[in-house]
Amino acid sequence: MIEIVYEKEKQKPEGNEGYFRIPNNIRQIGEITGTQKIYIEDYAYTYLCRIATENSHKGMAAILMGQSNWKDGNSYLFIKSAVALEEMEVSEEHLAFTQEIWNHVYEKNKEYFPEQEVVGWFLSIPGCSMELHEIICQTHLNHFGGNDKILLVREPLEKEEAFYRYEDGKMSRQTGFYVYYEKNEPMRSFLISQNAKQEKKTEEVDDSAVHTFRKKVEMKSETEEKYKFPVFKTVGVCAMAAALAVGVLYANDYKKEKSSKTAVASIKEKEEEPVKVTPVNGTPDENTKSEETEEVKEEIPKEEVQNSQPANVSAQNSYIIQQGDTLTKISIKNYGNAKRVKEICELNQIQENDLIYPGQTILLP
C-alpha cells in the first residue's frame, strides 16, 4: 500500500457538486482506481483503529455514517462518523444485526449525527482473511444493499485493512482510499461523550472495588475485636502459667542449693570444732569435762552426744569418727589394740580400705 499526502483546492460547483465539496487536506492510502472514491475523516478513522486494537482478542463491529454523492459518473463516499456496536457478538460465522442494535444506532444518529446517514459498516476480526467469508458477504447484502454502501475490514493483529463494495454481483475490494482532515464537531462531541462515560464507568468500578475492600476490612476488624479479648486472655493465662512454672523451678533449685550449702557448712563446722571423747582409761578434769560437755550440747544433737561417749560404756555401741581417725586408730583407741579392725568392718559392712570421714557414725563390736 502507498500513502500520499497532498492538498487539493476546492473546485467550483458543477452538476450536483453544490451539495458536497472535496476536502482540502487529505492523505491517500493505496491506489485510487475505478469510479468510486472513498474519503474517511481522521477522527472516525482513528476511532475505528483504536476500538480494533483495544479489542484485538475478539471480533468488533461498527456502523459508518456520512454522506454519498455522484458527479460525472463517479461516486464520492464521505465517512464522517462511526458508532461501535459493543453489545454485538462478532465472528466470521456469526453476525446478527438485531433490532436492539439498530435502535442503538438510530439513537446515536439522532443524538450526535442528525444530518448524516448510514453509509456502511466496519468489521474487525482477529485472523480474518481479506477473502471475505460467505456469511460476511450475505450480511452486507441483507443490511447494506446497494453499491453506495461500503464495508471496511481490518485485521487487528497484522493491521491489514481494505474497503469493499458490492458490484458486478460480488463484494469487490477497493485498491485505495483517502483520509481527510477537517473540523469534525459531531464526531468530536461523540468521542468526548464516550470518554466521559468510560471514565465514569471506570470510577464506578473503582468505587465498587474500594467499597468491597473497605467492607472486607471492616468485617475483618469486627472479627478481630470479637476474638481479641479471649485471645489476649488465653495468652495471659499461658504466660502466667509459664512464669509460675519457672518460679517453682527456681524456688526448688534455690531450696536445694540452700540445703546443700547448709549441709556443707555443718560438715565444716564439725570438722573445725573437734569433740573430745574421754579415753577409756582416763578421767578428765571436772572443769574441762563440764566445758566440753557444754560445747557438745550446743553443737551436736542429743543422739550424737550419746554416740560420742566412750566405747567401754556398756550402753554405747557406736562411735562418731573424728578428724584424722582411721579404722586402726579407732580400734586402738577403744580396745587398746588393732585386732578389732576386722570386726568393726564386718559390723559396718565396709572394707579396711574404704573411705571414712569426720562426723560419720559407725558401730563398735
Rank of each mutant, 00 (worst) to 15 (best):
K12S: 13
Q316D: 05
E31Q: 11
S189P: 00
I350A: 03
N55H: 13
I356W: 05
Y250W: 09
I101T: 14
E160D: 08
Y106A: 13
E14P: 00
Y357E: 10
P274C: 13
Q174I: 12
S314F: 09
I356M: 04
Y357A: 12
T46V: 12
K200V: 07
E107Q: 14
K302S: 14
N353I: 11
P279G: 15
S314K: 12
F97M: 15
I40P: 02
S221C: 03
D285Y: 11
Y319Q: 03
M219N: 08
I350E: 04
D148N: 08
E222P: 00
L363G: 06
K255W: 10
G324T: 12
G15Q: 05
R27C: 14
G236P: 00
N317R: 08
L48G: 04
I330W: 05
Q322C: 03
E161V: 03
K228T: 04
E111D: 13
P365K: 09
E298T: 15
N252G: 11
I356Y: 06
E303R: 03
A251Y: 15
T361I: 15
V237N: 00
A82F: 08
E218T: 12
E346M: 09
I26A: 10
N25P: 01
A239N: 06
V205G: 00
E117V: 13
S91Q: 06
M187Y: 02
H143Q: 01
T262K: 13
Q349C: 04
G146E: 01
N147I: 05
T262Q: 13
E131W: 04
T283Y: 10
